[in-house]
Design a protein around this nucleic acid. Structure first.
Lengths: 106, 106
DNA sequence: AAGATATGCAACCATTTGTTTGCTAATATA
DNA sequence: TATATTAGCAAACAAATGGTTGCATATCTT
């Protein structure tokens, strides 16, 4: 079963969960209360996030606190890196050059 | 139908296509030759990429050249921004502080 | 004009996804 | 100890996804 970081952040609910627990660890119940989904649904999302190591658990009594493994988010950043080179600095100039060429053509 | 940038980059083939046409516009056929999928499959991916404006077309005779709309990739970068604040600089220190507190507790 | 090529579109199908429901295990509280 | 709470797990299911096949359209080449 395909399960990587990109697949993990594809779901909007999952992105919301990520944003939620980024700064503060939370239990599945607490997370579920922030959305209009069931605890089980959140639990499954957490399971997926765990599988691709975007989240780490910490048992505390009968409660399990989930916290974001922020470092893993770097993988996305790393992939984005190659395009950042394009859109930053030189690209905007190149783009205007190209569109100038285009508009001056007819 | 849910269709955003995050959903678009979830598929590995789609990410490969994005990487392929990032620097040079290509036709569906040319793209398909780089993978072991059919032209129609690639075409569907391009359709999805077009829907979320990650890709722009340019007809040239009977050929259609697809090029990456690099600017759109910034959306991902923008979302990542909030976490970058966490993982950069201060976080690593905060993390060690927290785990120190934890291990010294019992 | 006729055939080849490039592409899009629609229908169909197997697989995956997200969710709910029901159950069990473990921990806390009375 | 008995009951309530927290949470994982499995089964079931509708919806979405990725792919294939077949066909229509437009453009190029001869």
């Amino acid at each position: 079963m395909r399960r990587d970081v990109f697949q993990a952040i594809a779901d909007p609910t999952r992105r919301a969960i990520i944003g939620l627990i980024a700064l503060q660890a939370m239990t599945p119940n607490a997370i579920a209360e922030h959305f209009d989904t069931s605890r089980q649904a959140v639990s499954k999302h957490l399971q997926i996030l765990t599988e691709c190591q975007l989240v780490k658990q910490e048992q505390q009594g009968r409660e399990i606190y989930y916290q974001l493994e922020v470092a893993k988010m770097k993988e996305i950043d790393k992939w984005l890196e190659q395009f950042r080179k394009i859109w930053e600095d030189r690209f905007s100039e190149l783009d205007t050059v190209l569109s100038n060429l285009k508009t001056n053509k007819p």
